[in-house]
Write a protein that binds this DNA or RNA. Structure first.
Lengths: 250, 250
DNA sequence: CCTGGATTTTGATCCAGATCAATTATTAAA
DNA sequence: TTTAATAATTGATCTGGATCAAAATCCAGG
C-alpha cells in the first residue's frame, strides 16, 4: 500500500499518464498543448461531494484523474438510477451536451480529482485540431457502447452473471490503469451496485456470497479478490435470460 | 390515408422536412448546402433488409427518411438485444464511431429510405462548419440520453409502465413528425417490443390487453389508438420498482 | 380459396429475485 | 469506550413475470 501525493505531481495533458485513456488514439504534442491550455484542474472532491446535478447548466466536461465518480439519472418520482461508475481516465458530463443542461448528477464515491474542460472552448479547439475532434466523437461513442453493454447485461443476464460482468469490467479497467486486475476495492456500496445492475442489495450480497462459495472470488468487506478469472468469464457468458427468437430456420 | 411517392420528392437537406429533427438547432442555408453535398440518398430498404451488421466496417452514419429501422446488439452467445427503433429524422450508425467497426446491426422493419453520410467527409465538413459539428455532438448526446431513459424504464418500471412509456414515446415522435399522436401502427412485433423492454412477448401481449381493458388504449392488430393519454402518462410515472434508498432524512 | 407457418392471445404453472425480517459488522459521533 | 446509525449478510416468504401449453388469428404462397 503506497500513497501518491497528487498535489506534487506536475500535471499537464502531455505528461498525464491517463491521456491515452482519455484520448485513446493519441494526439501530437502540440495538439495536446492546445488542449492542455484550456483544461482546469479543480480542487479535489470528497466522498459525497456533488460535481454537478441534474438540471444544472452545462459548461464543462470532466476527465476523472483520481477516485471514483458515480453518475445517476432519476425518474420523475425521484427514483435514482446509476448510469455508471467512472474511474481515472474516463470522461463525464457528456449528458449535458444535448440540451446544454445536465440530465445526470455526478457524485464522488471517494476523494476524487478531475480536470474540467470548458465545452465551448473545447469545441473551438476541436475546429483547429481535427484529430481532437475525432477523439471527442470516439469518447462519446464509447459512452454509447458502454450503455449498450449495460443494457445487454441487465436484460439478458441473471443476477450472478450481472455481478460477474460488473466485477470483470472493473477488473479490466483497473488493469488498464496499471493496478491489480485481481485485487481491488469497491468504492461503491452493495446497494449502489444493485441499483446499477437492476437488483436489490440483498440479491447483490447473496450473489457475491455465492460466487465466493464457488471459489471464484474472495470478499473482504469492500475488497474483492478474483480467484478464478476464467470461471468468472464463463458465468458472464453462460446463463442467459429469456430469448424466444428461435429464428434459426429448420 | 394518403400515400406519398417519395421518388418524386426533390430531396436535399435544405428542403427536407426532417432537417430540424436531424439537426435540432438548425443550420444556415449555405451550411446545409455543404452538408447536402456529401449526403447520399440510398435505394430504399425493404422489410427485413439489413443496412449494416455488427462487425461491419464503419463508413457512414444514416438519417432515417421514411420507415422504421431497428438497431440490435448481441451477447457472445448471439442473444439479441434491441437498442432502439428509429423513425424518420433520427440518426443511426453512431455505434461505429468508437472503434470504426459497427457494434450494432441495423434492420428495416418497414420499407425505409435513408440518407447515408460518409463519416469522414462529415467530420471534414464539421471542421469548416462549427455549428454542424456542435449539432453532431448534440445528436450523439441525444443518443446517450435515449439510452439513459431506456435504462431507467427497464430497471424502475413494471411491465405495464414499460409498455405505457414505450407507446407514449412513439406517440410523441409521431406527433413531431406531423402524424397523429393517438393513432399509429406498430412497425415491430410484440416479440420485438418485448426484447426492447426486457419482457417476453407474452407479457407484452398481456400488458397491452390489460391497458385496453382499462380503456387507456385500443388495439387492432398492429394499430394502436391511445384513448386516455393522461392515464397512460400516469401509469408511466406511478408504480415504480424497488428503490430502497430512503435517504429522506427524518 | 385453401394451406402451413408465423404471430398473437390467453390460461396454468413455476421460479428468480423482490420483499420482509432478524442478526451481525462497520463507522461515526459523543 | 459506549452509543447510535449505516452497511452487509443471511433466512423465510411472496409475487410479477417467465415458462409451458394451447387455441385463435393473420398472411403469404400456391
Amino acid at each position: 500500500m503506497y500513497v501518491i501525493d497528487f498535489t506534487k505531481i506536475k500535471v499537464s495533458c502531455e505528461n498525464c499518464s491517463l491521456h491515452e485513456l482519455c484520448l485513446p488514439r493519441g494526439l501530437e504534442k502540440n495538439e495536446l498543448e492546445k488542449l492542455d491550455s484550456i483544461v482546469n484542474r479543480t480542487q479535489p472532491l470528497h466522498k459525497g461531494d456533488v460535481l454537478f446535478r441534474s438540471g444544472d447548466t452545462f459548461t464543462n466536461i470532466y476527465a476523472v484523474r483520481t477516485g471514483c465518480i458515480k453518475l445517476t439519472t432519476s425518474t420523475e418520482q425521484g427514483e435514482e438510477q446509476i448510469i455508471g461508475f467512472y474511474l481515472p481516465g474516463e470522461i463525464i458530463g457528456l449528458d449535458g451536451i444535448e440540451k446544454d443542461i445536465h440530465s445526470c448528477t455526478a457524485e464522488a464515491l471517494d476523494t476524487s480529482s478531475l480536470c474540467a474542460i470548458p465545452f465551448d472552448n473545447m469545441t473551438t479547439v476541436c475546429t483547429q485540431v481535427p484529430s481532437l475532434n475525432h477523439e471527442m466523437f470516439r469518447v462519446m461513442g464509447r459512452e454509447i457502447s458502454h450503455e449498450n453493454q449495460l443494457l445487454l447485461t441487465i436484460t439478458k443476464k441473471h443476477a450472478e452473471g450481472r455481478i460477474a460482468t460488473f466485477l470483470l469490467s472493473l477488473s479490466g479497467r483497473f488493469k488498464q490503469l496499471g493496478y491489480s486486475e485481481t485485487e481491488f476495492r469497491l468504492a461503491m456500496s452493495r446497494s449502489e451496485v444493485g441499483n446499477y445492475l437492476g437488483l436489490t442489495f440483498e440479491t447483490v450480497s447473496r450473489s457475491m456470497s455465492k460466487l465466493q462459495k464457488q471459489g471464484l472470488i474472495s470478499i473482504n468487506q469492500k475488497y474483492i479478490t478474483i480467484e478464478d478469472m476464467d470461471s468468472l468469464h464463463h458465468i458472464c457468458n453462460e446463463k442467459d435470460l429469456p430469448s424466444k427468437e428461435s429464428k434459426t430456420a429448420p
